[in-house]
Amino acid sequence: MIDVLIAEDEPGILESLDFILKRAGWTIQTVTDGDAVFDAIRKLAPRVLVLDVMLPKRSGFEVLKQIKSESATSGLPVLILTAKGQQQDRRIAEELGADGFVTKPYANAEVVEAVRRLLGTAAP
């Protein structure tokens, strides 16, 4: 079991998220496309999923919809990442059951705080 699974295809953002979340004390694994998310969830049993909206193969919305519709994964907290100014993305994500929302570009502390809230823990 890991703390956080990150689904992000942009190398710079992925590296940044990996770094700040590891520095906060969590165990991290990453995937770079929508199809890989499901295998990773089954194999790694993450406590939180950080999910980009714009992913190759399957969008973050498709991934979110499937996660929330399956009983085995419906309880997994999902933090959605989206580009600045995409109000519609936020509305769609909320309708599909997203548990949290961070807009890119983001402040490192904002991401750490959002993950901490979803994990229901103080700093590790």
Results as ranks from 00 to 15, higher is better:
residue 112 V to T: 08
residue 27 T to S: 09
residue 73 T to M: 12
residue 56 P to K: 13
residue 51 L to H: 03
residue 99 D to E: 01
residue 56 P to T: 13
residue 44 L to M: 09
residue 76 L to I: 08
residue 34 G to F: 11
residue 38 F to Q: 05
residue 15 E to S: 14
residue 44 L to I: 05
residue 90 R to W: 01
residue 101 F to M: 07
residue 92 I to D: 03
residue 83 A to Q: 09
residue 2 I to V: 02
residue 53 V to L: 07
residue 37 V to M: 10
residue 47 R to E: 05
residue 101 F to A: 04
residue 46 P to Q: 01
residue 52 D to K: 14
residue 51 L to W: 05
residue 81 L to C: 03
residue 85 G to M: 02
residue 78 V to E: 04
residue 114 A to M: 01
residue 7 A to Q: 10
residue 112 V to E: 10
residue 76 L to T: 02
residue 52 D to L: 10
residue 39 D to Q: 13
residue 52 D to Q: 13
residue 53 V to E: 02
residue 102 V to K: 10
residue 72 A to K: 11
residue 67 I to G: 06
residue 115 V to T: 05
residue 6 I to Q: 13
residue 16 S to T: 15
residue 117 R to V: 07
residue 87 Q to V: 05
residue 12 G to C: 04
residue 101 F to C: 05
residue 34 G to S: 14
residue 24 A to G: 08
residue 100 G to P: 01
residue 120 G to E: 04
residue 45 A to R: 10
residue 57 K to Y: 15
residue 4 V to T: 06
residue 1 M to L: 06
residue 56 P to V: 12
residue 3 D to K: 00
residue 17 L to H: 11
residue 60 G to L: 06
residue 90 R to E: 03
residue 68 K to A: 02
residue 76 L to H: 05
residue 92 I to V: 04
residue 123 A to T: 11
residue 26 W to Q: 10
residue 89 D to T: 01
residue 122 A to P: 13
residue 59 S to V: 05
residue 106 Y to P: 06
residue 47 R to D: 02
residue 101 F to P: 00
